[in-house]
Design a protein around this nucleic acid. Structure first.
Lengths: 239, 239
DNA sequence: CGCAAGTTTGACGCTGCTCAATCACTGTGG
DNA sequence: CCACAGTGATTGAGCAGCGTCAAACTTGCG
């Protein structure tokens, strides 16, 4: 969204002291009181919930530029956890500092709410994905989404591949399948020449094909609108 | 959330002219530009998405007191539709009027954001539900949630039953099952003396039992927190 | 070199889907 | 007042997508 110089400076100062966290660490757990807003500067994080029987549902992926829980401090406790998939640089911004900035800079506040609404829209799309599509379609849809999001933050390599540090277990817990079935489905997708995937990298070989399989329509990410708005000012907050 | 007299008045004036809509009508469709915020005053509405093959995923239920899309006017177009399950009284508040109120009454704005965050938390729980639980558990969880929400707005009848205008088809489209399987699962649930359900009414006969089956933990609805906060002022906005 | 984590494979079975028919309820018009 | 239609609930038979279990294989790494 369009932001002025001053706002950009404020944002940069907030993210001035990122810390490096090891992979597989949790940033915050369900039931705890949220006291920081986390900004992912590099690496991948993910939201998840655990069931008593140990089942895990992954609820969202957070890639560089994404903020975790901008407003969650309105709540007394987290209703889900956030973990790291890879080593990551993360800036932890104290809630009160965040609140102050939001009060002083309405444009920033609005940009942050925008990102919350996009998160919500993405959750709706994921629910549709898991509820109504079969295994092959679910994975196709997920890969299309991640492609578009990585593209939006400029993280696609020249060869068209991008970092994708998920195991097949994480793919399974994202799509509501088992890792065994994910494995077989991936094999089919490779046979069909839609993707190359392995060693923490993903390369989509046939985006139109994959998009068709996953019935992927990026409208829910609302990225074109955002683009259109920021073209007018030239400055963009990537959230 | 705690609100002053003035705020309560403003809210009442916003909802002064509700219109009555027929069942099965859509309030707004995917792709259209949102121009109103809808406040459901009586009856049930639901958010949904359609797939090209006709599959429908229901994403949320809106019961009396719920607001649709408080902030959705930040987006250029709807990424989902909202329909009505029953005849309903709905107040349509123009977006600009809503914006104005939010600017003049920060407490109202905050209360509205609260409700958006609860919507998002509920979506996360639904994704967990559909992704990780079996048919019996999914339905149990859904029924527990609706019980708690109806209770929170005082819509449980003295006999413990509440309005529940869903067909088995809607239950199927909510839980990612088929109506045939929902039917058989409901029969088991009735045999197990957990619920009575029919004629648009639901009565939970054994809440502890149902809660156990559905592994239902209402933390994601964040209702206790809200309660605790409003006790201090005595006035509550039900969103 | 050897462990740990992740991937792959096979055999088998169950949950939940498909198709299709029948039944029950409600509102309608003659 | 009743036949009729439409919508939703119920039932049955057959089947397939995906899960379970378990073992083997591959890769990264200390």
């Amino acid at each position: 969204m369009p932001l002025g110089d001053e706002e950009v400076q404020v944002l940069e100062s907030l993210s001035r002291n990122p810390k490096t966290y090891a992979a597989n660490r949790d940033l915050i757990r369900e039931g705890r009181k949220p006291e920081h807003v986390f900004l992912v500067m590099s690496g991948w994080a993910y939201r998840y919930k655990l069931l008593p029987n140990g089942n895990r549902q992954i609820l969202a992926y957070l890639i560089p530029g994404d903020l975790c829980d901008v407003h969650i401090f309105l709540f007394d406790e987290m209703d889900h956890s956030i973990g790291l998939l890879s080593e990551a640089q993360v800036a932890a911004i104290p809630s009160d500092e965040m609140l102050e900035v939001m009060e002083r800079f309405p444009k920033i506040e609005r940009a942050l709410w925008w990102s919350t609404l996009v998160d919500e829209a993405t959750l709706r799309e994921w629910l549709l994905n898991v509820g109504q599509r079969d295994a092959y379609e679910r994975l196709a849809h997920l890969f299309c989404e991640m492609e578009v999001r990585m593209e939006a933050v400029g993280l696609i390599k020249p060869d068209g591949s991008f970092d994708f540090p998920l195991t097949q277990i994480e793919l399974a817990d994202t799509t509501g399948l088992t890792s065994v079935h994910v494995n077989r489905t991936l094999q089919r997708m490779r046979r069909d020449k839609l993707i190359e995937f392995g060693q923490q990298r993903m390369r989509i070989l046939d985006f139109p094909g994959l998009r068709g399989v996953g019935q992927f329509n990026p409208n829910y990410l609302h990225v074109e609108e955002k683009r259109a708005r920021s073209r007018s000012s030239g400055v963009e907050l990537r959230v």
